[in-house]
Nucleic acid binder design. Sequence first.
DNA 1: CTGAAAGCGCTTACAG
DNA 2: CTGAAAGCGCTTACAG
Lengths: 343, 343
Amino acid sequence: MTITIKDIAKAADVSTATVSKVINGKMYVSPATRENVLRIMKELNYVPNASAANLARRSNKTILYADNFYKGAPYKNPHMFDIICGVSHELSRKGYHLSLLNLDSCGKHPKELFEEAILSHSADGIILSGVFATPQIERLMLRYDFPQICIGKPDFDTLLSWIDINNMLSANLAVEHLFSCGSRKIAFMGDHETDKIFMDRLRGFRAAMETVGLEVRDEYIAYNDPDINAIYEAATRILELSDPPDGIICTNGLMAVGTIRAIEVKGLSVPEEIELVAFDDYPYSPAVSVPPTVIDIDLFSLGVQAGNLLLKRVRDPAMLIQTYTALPRILERDTTRTKSKIT
Amino acid sequence: MTITIKDIAKAADVSTATVSKVINGKMYVSPATRENVLRIMKELNYVPNASAANLARRSNKTILYADNFYKGAPYKNPHMFDIICGVSHELSRKGYHLSLLNLDSCGKHPKELFEEAILSHSADGIILSGVFATPQIERLMLRYDFPQICIGKPDFDTLLSWIDINNMLSANLAVEHLFSCGSRKIAFMGDHETDKIFMDRLRGFRAAMETVGLEVRDEYIAYNDPDINAIYEAATRILELSDPPDGIICTNGLMAVGTIRAIEVKGLSVPEEIELVAFDDYPYSPAVSVPPTVIDIDLFSLGVQAGNLLLKRVRDPAMLIQTYTALPRILERDTTRTKSKIT
DNA sequence: CTGAAAGCGCTTACAG
DNA sequence: CTGAAAGCGCTTACAG
């Protein structure tokens, strides 16, 4: 019924070893017999049995992506799935498979799941969300010398590999953009101080403000709950300051929605009287009456790079990867206008 | 180095056959020797080699999820990923793995990728987006008798298995809810007529209106581009009709944003003067100043069911699954108020 | 209730 | 440049 390497060998009148060599294309086979074997494989519609190859070669050509894939996760954090798309893209280009390891759905401790995955030899490497990177997991990975890369820098000094985005850099970009558009009094609409990403952006904001020689005013910084009406009110308060800002950075899209509404209600014109830059194009940009200029972070390409680096690590066990990447870029739309465009 | 079934057999002083039997828990083993083997497995931290087991048992315990995982897909269609989460949840509960088959990233035709997947025996079954279900793919799946289930009913008569949501039913629910809240003149803010989901909802809307004995007025139905300002204007037009509606159904969240803004600007009070129900809680509900009542469709559980049914099909090759599921439910918030609540 | 042995379909030193 | 043969680590009739 199903046809095997033996059938090909027989039909081509060579050994299975030779067929294997042409399948894998590494060892030398004479062009003539290679062509012949290839032709017969095609004729018989032969595809090697993956399990058998995996067993013999001690490698599955599969990478695990470990995270909590809980109900609603894609709504709460679509970015994570864009990363997965990038990983999948890169891996399938390289002939690898991507398998999901759901840390969330069977009551077992992640450590147990990781160890099973490693010991069962069901993958060549693993990509895991940085939030699962604990010293315990670090020990596990290092003990088995299992190729791994964390998405997001673990919050302790570690020998694990990781890749992360540079939030300070993107805040810097926001400030520079507003500055080049003419803003001199820049406000910052932020999340709570417990939000790590926001705090990194705030730090980048402060640093960039100093660089361009602008003052950071306490009354220009708001810490908000994710509540649209509260955001609206906070923005209104800032706009009604006796000396109001002429530029605003919003740490996420929801902030931008509330802030833009406040600006409209106050009757200020955008971008003439006040300019605005927000982080995250998704999801709110289409729902805002004046399309906001936005700092977009390419998480797909973060995924591509994570996949690429992990594959390198699979080949070179000595490699340690710890890097910031995923450069931000400005999508200029209607809430800012660059002066003096260089064309 | 890595420890195998032989090591366990030796340590437990039994044959590898016996160890295998306790691992798989199917054939009979005396309680005493079972306990002993189990204990030793634990002691030696033994996990069976998955590739070897796969080869011997001719089954990988893995299911493929095939779709285009292109850059930005999770923003454009987060629902698909919620389905994947549901599938992953169900499969990992049942000891199966979920592997992504990216149809988008290597220039090969999907048919080729499917055939390779089948012939390489790298999975026990496949879940694929219904848009890839063509007669050609149908022939392929049926020829190899490969367990499959499409997410979304294929648009031709087919022997493929599929699972889909019932958009007519959810529209029905929207109408019934508005009716029970007192609305009698109901408008419908829709997508273009080319949108299949919208057209199903519109059909359900018409049917439900007839059932409750209300008239469907042409001027109450708008076909919109996904442009927030255009939606706002269309909604305004409808609200300014000489005989305006007292209830509105929005076929998606963006429609709701634009419509609610139009309602606010016209100074109508919600839900007193006009009520509104929208489809899709995500992503816009948090960005609207008055939280909309919404029809939520549980796609995670659609995924759970898809996984569950496919696994049944893997066991019973004769099974054909064709079913509507993923029942919609109302999340009542501030844009409607149910009269006569039964408490 | 348990084990010897064949087999799953490949890959890879090794010898020639 | 090619092939014989061992081996990867399990599972599963089959016999006892």
